[in-house]
């Protein structure tokens, strides 16, 4: 296992004026290059936890390390260099008058040189397969292009960790899949990816590790296929395992899954089983 890129030790957090801890003694390690889904009921603490990764919140107790550095010793702007946050809706993120300014904004704030910024722009446009004029107004681009521009402007800061907060809001399945495919490509190139979502079908298609939050603590943490087989425990955390796992449980309970289950994979397993039998 490679070194932890995010490490959380005994983290507690209490919002001002509240009597209950929003996070209660959380311990967690995420290794470089992982693809993690963070799931849990509304109010379980997912967003509070993520805000500790990018330094928007600082622990009431305990410690959070990003790339080995204690987040209390870093400014949010410094953390932005390591952690990119992709908004669920590109139009909540895009604000500049031109494609160039949109992408340049982050790197400029990080103090990148003019020359470096220009090469970053070229690089991320290519990486996101965006063939657009740099002087074009972002709002004249198609929705798919705006989505890719939003991801591109986060990538221009060269973050090694990407956080994607609920990729389904305001989008249909097809649009969510497009965004997740982009994220998958970046994960293949070595970026660590953390996604929060209520859509378990998306989780089972993309994540290799699932962390379930419940009442401010980590309730389950493991390989996607193992977590989704613990259906009773999941229910107590407000999570329903995807139907393919429930179907697998009643039809092929003895089979070791080995990797996440999709409808196609379940069909293959059933088919092999019946040919053997």
């Amino acid at each position: 296992m490679s070194e932890a890129i995010i490490k959380v030790e005994n983290l507690c957090f209490q919002y001002p004026g509240r009597s209950v801890n929003a996070l209660q003694d959380v311990n967690l390690e995420i290794a470089e290059g992982e693809f993690v889904a963070l799931i849990g009921q509304n109010g379980s603490g997912k967003t509070t936890l993520i805000k500790h990764f990018n330094g928007l919140l600082k622990p009431s107790k305990g410690k959070v390390f990003v790339k080995g550095k204690d987040t209390t010793s870093l400014r949010t702007a410094e953390l932005a260099r390591s952690i990119g946050y992709v908004f669920q809706n590109p139009d909540h993120q895009i604000f500049a008058e031109t494609v160039r300014d949109e992408i340049a904004f982050g790197p400029k704030n990080l103090g990148f040189s003019e020359e470096r910024i220009n090469s970053e722009i070229e690089r991320v446009l290519k990486e996101m397969d965006l063939d657009v004029d740099l002087d074009e107004m972002p709002f004249q681009l198609s929705r798919g292009q705006r989505q890719r521009l939003a991801v591109a402007s986060v990538l221009a800061m060269e973050p090694s960790i990407l956080i994607i907060d609920e990729p389904t809001t305001g989008q249909d399945w097809k649009e969510s899949i497009l965004l997740m495919n982009l994220v998958q490509n970046l994960n293949d190139k070595g970026h660590t990816c953390i996604v929060t979502t209520h859509n378990m079908n998306l989780v089972s298609l993309f994540a290799r590790r699932v962390i379930v939050m419940k009442s401010g603590n980590i309730f389950l943490d493991g390989a996607t296929q193992d977590v989704f087989r613990r259906e009773e425990e999941l229910l107590t955390a407000g999570i329903k395992a995807p139907d393919v796992y429930l179907l697998a449980r009643s039809l092929i309970p003895q089979v070791q899954l080995g990797k996440p289950l999709t409808p196609q994979r379940l069909a293959e397993l059933l088919n092999t089983q019946s040919n053997l039998g």
Binding site: K174, P242, V244, Q264, A267
Partner: peptide
């Protein structure tokens, strides 16, 4: 074809049918 994700159990049976079930 419309980018809608059909129920997972339906998709599973769909793949089985393609395999001759």
């Amino acid at each position: 074809s419309l980018g809608i994700y059909p129920p997972q159990v339906t998709q599973t049976a769909f793949h089985l049918r393609e395999a001759g079930w």
